[in-house]
Amino acid sequence: MSLPDHGRYDYVPITRRPEVTWPEGKRLAVYIGLNLEHFAFAEGLGAELAPGGPQPDILNYAWRDYGNRVGAWRMLDLLDRLSFPATVLANSAMYGYTPELMAAVRARGDEVAGHGRTNSDRQSTMSEAQERAMIEEATRTIHAAEGVAPTGWLSPWIAESKVTPDLLAEAGYRYTLNWCMDDQPVWMRTRSGPLLSVPYPQEVNDIPAIVARKDSASDFADMIVDNFDEMLDQSQGQSLVMGIALHPYIVGQPFRLRHLARALTHVAGHRDEVWLTRAGDIAEHWARAVPPGAKDGAPR
């Protein structure tokens, strides 16, 4: 008896993949996913950094807002010092709430990927019509501000309905960061054609590490360094993708930022060996090198 299956991609082990190299013959692509999020006050979802109470939950709301008011600015300064690009995963509500921050992202030339309207909502609880309308609203807001439509998407809370990949493909998205099942991009099936899954980390990610597992700032920095060093070794025989997922209200705190700077300085120090890039650039390169239907590269 077979188990229920999503039908989105086939099982192809990492040992049986197309031969691909990144630009300049490099083997490891590294990108930062910088989450910029706005939350509704006194309603909806929100990460609880401390045990929450009845709404209005002032403590956790203000704690998260520190990331937009202070932490994100400190992180952009750090990325500037290291000449490190980023993929900014932005709630579209950020354009109304923090226009100066989004302008600073634009001035850096960072990629802006869709991240829903707000992290107070979860796509998995929406009807198909509601979800389609939310994706369209978020996409339209980003397009109007940036002059180009986003090509990538990370769902708030990484929550999908059964039709999320279909809706993303129908809205013009070319890649998703929702699925964390691989160290290489993987083509997924949708009812409207292929959609590329670009690896997004659930280990080298400050929310699971620091909020859920209670790892220290030093532990998280060591995790970035160890993951990078090991993947750099592994990539000598096979091109890989390493994502680093960051939230300014967590690692933008001063004592954590100092440790993050240590880790990112280590990564940036290898820029001659690795491709420091953005998730959209990874998706574009892979789509050219391994188009849908290529042997062992995509569902057929």
Rank of each mutant, 00 (worst) to 15 (best):
I135T: 10
E136F: 03
E137P: 06
A138L: 10
T139D: 04
R140T: 15
R140M: 01
T141F: 00
I142E: 02
I142Y: 05
H143P: 00
A145E: 06
E146P: 00
G147V: 04
V148A: 11
T151M: 05
T151A: 12
W153F: 15
L154C: 07
L154I: 02
P156R: 11
W157G: 02
A159S: 10
A159G: 07
V163Y: 07
D166F: 12
D166R: 14
L167C: 07
L168K: 12
L168E: 07
A169M: 06
G172V: 10
Y173I: 12
Y173D: 08
R174Q: 13
T176P: 03
T176G: 09
T176N: 10
L177R: 06
W179K: 08
W179P: 03
M181D: 13
D182V: 13
V186R: 15
V186T: 15
W187C: 13
M188E: 10
M188L: 14
R189P: 06
T190W: 07
G193F: 10
G193P: 11
L195D: 07
V198T: 12
V198R: 09
P199D: 11
Y200N: 12
Y200I: 10
P201H: 06
P201S: 15
Q202F: 12
V204T: 15
V204W: 05
N205V: 04
D206N: 04
I207Q: 02
I207F: 08
I207N: 05
I210E: 03
I210S: 01
V211G: 02
R213D: 09
K214W: 01
A217P: 08
D219F: 09
F220K: 09
M223N: 09
M223Q: 13
M223F: 00
I224K: 04
D226P: 00
D226W: 04
D229K: 15
S235Q: 12
Q236R: 15
S239N: 11
I244H: 04
H247E: 02
Y249S: 01
Y249N: 01
V251T: 14
Q253M: 09
P254D: 02
F255G: 00
L257F: 02
L260P: 01
A268N: 12
H270S: 02
D272V: 05
D272T: 08
E273H: 04
V274D: 10
V274L: 09
